[in-house]
């Protein structure tokens, strides 16, 4: 591509001045990383379905040129599941935040990990409900030494551990302060044949005054190059090791695809629906 040429993912995308995120929001980096990843993967907007969660993060689907579906709070993964089952030729990416995924949508998160559809989930994790003005989300309290857990304010829920326990086959973390690395992670996630969870630390500059860019910079640490990504045991060990050192791993924590058969697009065009032999259905009713 010639220097300075716009990619198809930059054409028709919402101009920056129309984007309604706070200046400095971590989601800008996710948007840029997604554009770069989709460009690197040579995907066209026609082949991609972006399913948005509810919250600031879900708006990302409108700032990207691609098919999109937007439903209810916590539902993104279930819509994505149905869409991918119906049309496996689509690249389906669910884009949501920690509140949507780990609170109201946690049922879908756990069961999507079990089902392992070929869907990529990007969690834009900022520790707050931003759109409703800063209430605690399930990842609130991350790294806060004076956080006293109670019924009202339970401890941080780690999506990496939950995904690993629930059977996800690709688990990675990235940081909006390092969009180049986030792009590499996203490319691997979309390439993965199965459910890929990417937890992106995407600071909320307005409501989370603790987990700031600087705080994350001081705490993220790349997954070591010698980490065995195919081993769940190694993944658990890595998580415990990072926890002990009060660090956050960024990079691919676990990648172990399940064997899968070829899925086919479900019939929907008239020619595909014409012939229905009713005999097998009546056979059991005599």
């Amino acid at each position: 591509m010639p220097e300075g040429a716009k990619t198809i993912w930059d054409q028709n995308a919402t101009p920056r001045h129309r984007i309604q995120w706070c200046p400095g929001c971590g989601d800008y980096a996710v948007l840029n990383a997604l554009k770069a990843a989709l460009t690197a993967l040579e995907l066209t907007p026609f082949e991609v379905l972006l399913v948005g969660g509810i919250g600031c993060s879900g708006q990302i689907r409108n700032y990207l040129n691609g098919n999109s579906f937007y439903g209810t709070h916590g539902g993104a993964l279930a819509y994505a599941l149905g869409a991918k089952m119906a049309n496996p030729e689509l690249t389906v990416i669910a884009l949501a935040d920690d509140g949507d995924t780990l609170a109201i949508g946690v049922e879908n998160f756990v069961h999507t990990c079990r089902r392992d559809p070929d869907v990529t989930l990007v969690i834009m994790d900022n520790g707050v409900y931003g759109l409703t003005k800063g209430q605690d989300s399930p990842s609130a309290g991350l790294g806060q030494p004076d956080w006293v857990p109670s019924e009202e304010h339970p401890p941080f829920l780690d999506p990496v551990k939950l995904a690993l326990a629930s059977g996800a086959t690709f688990i990675a973390q990235s940081f909006s302060g390092d969009p180049k690395h986030a792009t590499e992670v996203l490319v691997e996630a979309v390439r993965h044949r199965g459910f890929a969870v990417v937890n992106d630390f995407s600071p909320c500059v307005t409501y989370n005054k603790f987990n700031t860019y600087d705080w994350f910079r001081a705490h993220v640490e790349p997954v070591p190059a010698d980490h065995d990504v195919e081993s769940a045991d190694a993944a658990w060990q890595l998580i415990r090791d990072f926890e002990r050192r009060a660090k956050l791993p960024v990079g691919i924590v676990y990648r172990h695809p399940r064997p899968k058969g070829d899925a086919r697009r479900l019939p929907m065009w008239p020619a595909e629906l014409e012939r229905v032999d009713v005999e097998p259905m009546l056979a059991g009713l005599r």
């Binding site: 379905l49 279930a78 869409a83 991918k84 879908n108 069961h111 929907m268």
Partner: peptide, 23 residues
């Protein structure tokens, strides 16, 4: 699809329908 709950089933059906499959 046997949904993990009532909501997953209707949401999956909406997702499938959105791709054009009669659901």
């Amino acid at each position: 699809l046997q949904g993990a709950n009532e909501r997953e089933s209707i949401r999956a059906a909406l997702g499938a329908s959105a791709t054009g499959v009669l659901s």
